[in-house]
């Protein structure tokens, strides 16, 4: 494998650069949006200890997003803050399921958030993130492999946390089981694009940036299969399309408006 040591080297091969930036946008946008949804939960978790743990995870995850946006900045995509705040809906590459609102209401007003959604979503996502980060930790692009290794150090604990919630709630009351199962069913019909790499998947594989889509998907199915008491029989789906290709829902639009509200209030300003 030819190791690409830095951004300057990566920029010399346009096909390599394109596949690499596409991949990093996906990683950055996934972490960014799930962290945004996590931040909306603050103060609303089932108990204080969970608020402390969840906000710690959310904060780490935003840290990972920042590292990915900074990789993009090095690759010539522009300033990391601009990338996070100014790209349009169509330019976003996160999986659609990750942008789903936490429940009814807004985070500061009548937030009827659903803990079952939080648990299922974060468990599914963190399980996949571990597989993806491990695949990327041997990536041909050295700076990316380094970030993945760094992220894995924290991410292992994130996954352990959500796995614990999954196990507890699936084996608790009838009510809890039903709530979790119904969120698993829902995720099953929407999660597939999170597992995918979009239209540059073949180039990503060719340039040894990450493993194949098939491998990632199978590894995820195998892993969650162990922890889900009753895995759905239906095949995985992407009900709303593929976020990897810039398809998104009104939920992401709402998130973009919120997180860029201050940023947009004075674009000349240094905050």
């Amino acid at each position: 494998m030819t190791v690409v040591e830095n951004a300057e080297q990566a920029k010399k091969d346009p096909s390599y650069l394109k596949a690499l930036t596409e991949l990093v946008y996906q990683l950055a946008d996934d972490d960014f949006i799930i962290s945004f949804r996590g931040a909306e939960w603050l103060g609303l978790a089932p108990h204080i200890e969970e608020d402390v743990a969840f906000s710690s995870i959310t904060q780490n995850t935003m840290g990972h997003a920042v590292m990915f946006y900074e990789l993009l900045e090095e690759l010539g995509e522009g300033n990391a803050d601009v990338l996070a705040h100014e790209r349009t809906l169509e330019q976003r590459r996160n999986g659609i399921y990750l942008e789903k609102r936490n429940g009814e209401g807004a985070y500061h007003e009548e937030p009827y958030y659903d803990w079952a959604l939080a648990v299922v979503r974060n468990y599914f996502y963190e399980t996949f993130k571990k597989i993806k980060m491990e695949a990327i930790s041997t990536s041909s692009y050295k700076p990316l492999a380094n970030v993945a290794s760094k992220a894995l150090m924290e991410q292992t604990y994130h996954l352990a946390h959500w796995k614990m919630w999954m196990n507890q709630l699936q084996h608790a009351t009838e009510d809890a089981r039903e709530r979790i199962n119904s969120r698993i069913e829902e995720a099953w019909s929407e999660f597939e694009d999170v597992l995918e790499l979009g239209s540059y998947a073949n180039d990503m594989l060719k340039h040894q940036l990450i493993s194949s889509e098939d491998y990632l998907k199978e590894a995820w199915l195998k892993e969650v299969g162990v922890n889900i008491a009753n895995p759905p029989e239906s095949p995985l789906g992407k009900k709303y399309g593929s976020g990897r290709n810039g398809v998104h829902t009104a939920d992401l639009k709402q998130a973009l408006q919120t997180f860029a509200e201050v940023y947009n209030s004075d674009k000349k300003a240094v905050w």
Binding site: L42, S55, Q59, M62, Y69, T258, V262, W271
Partner: peptide
Amino acid sequence: EKEWTPKAPTLRRKLGIMAKVQ
């Protein structure tokens, strides 16, 4: 402060205020 956490205007400020509320 949580009211402003999702709206923090830069990535660094987001990290800062997230750490603080935590």
